[in-house]
Write a protein that binds this DNA or RNA. Structure first.
Length: 259
DNA sequence: ATGGTAGCCCTGCTA
């Protein structure tokens, strides 16, 4: 199985690049974030023609998450659902579906804006709710992959200049603890499992100031998976080519294989 | 140098 996640920063603008990606990347499941589309505008037919079923949780102008699969889509959940209060209620930030034997979850974690702020506080709360949602719906022995834009740099080596970002969002101890809490539940950072000793492998580069070409990026797009998946992972890569060329997203796809 | 760019439509806000 080849699974991938990509924050496309507007699927309307990025659709040609996503079609191109599906044409060469040979993915079975693709989780997408920041579609910035309403549900009625989502291009299901375009993906169908490429061999992928798709489901979308959209709100229009902002956010929006989707799952594309060529191994089936069932048991779709939109957001945290009843019984879990969403600190970002109204935002389309989570969708999950059973794709073959895998439960794929596409997440767009709130950015948090600045530290301190009420947005930042609610980001941390959103992470708590995500863990609650996992706990209610799955066990660590299930095959679950939570893929998406976490808006957190797991370690200092996952950002081009940790010192320059000291005290700002994405790298605070509390945000990292929120990711670790998911790992305590049973999730594994599959990309890091493959690239144990590699630093400077990023998935996001700001559009401004030529950050991509200056190698000033962050690894914030993660494929966290339960042990049954993580133990079977054979390969993981960032598709940096997708960050180049005409109208790229500010994120590159992260691809993970497991057998 | 507290900027820069991209994308949305609340042409200001979000990232």
């Amino acid at each position: 199985m080849r699974i991938a996640t990509w924050n496309v920063n507007s699927l309307k603008v990025r659709l040609p690049r996503v079609e191109e990606f599906l044409g060469y990347a040979n993915v079975d499941v693709l989780c997408i974030q920041e579609t910035k589309l309403s549900d009625k505008a989502f291009p299901h037919l375009t993906f169908q023609e490429l061999g992928y079923e798709s489901v979308h949780n959209g709100q229009g102008q902002w956010n929006g998450v989707a799952i594309l699969s060529r191994v089936g889509i069932a048991d779709v959940q939109y957001g945290f659902g009843e019984g879990i209060e969403d600190p970002y209620a109204g935002d389309a930030r989570l969708i999950s579906a059973k794709c073959g034997d895998l439960t794929a979850v596409s997440v767009y974690v709130p950015n948090g804006r600045t530290v301190p702020s009420e947005f930042y506080d609610r980001k941390l709360l959103w992470f708590q709710r995500l863990r609650e949602w996992l706990d209610r719906n799955f066990t660590p022995s299930d095959s679950v992959a939570v893929m998406g834009d976490y808006n957190v740099v797991p370690e200092d080596r996952d950002v081009w200049n940790a010192a320059a970002m000291e005290g700002s969002t994405h790298i605070t101890p509390d945000e990292r603890a929120a990711v670790h809490a998911l790992c305590d539940w049973g999730m594994v950072d599959t990309f890091r499992k493959i690239h144990l000793d590699d630093d400077g492998l990023y998935s996001y580069w700001d559009y401004r100031a030529g950050d991509f070409h200056q190698h000033r990026g962050m690894r914030i797009d993660l494929v966290l998976a339960t042990k049954p998946i993580a133990d079977a992972v054979t390969y993981a890569v960032v598709d940096r080519n997708a960050r180049k060329g005409t109208q790229p997203s500010d994120h590159a796809p992260v691809i993970v294989d497991y057998s």
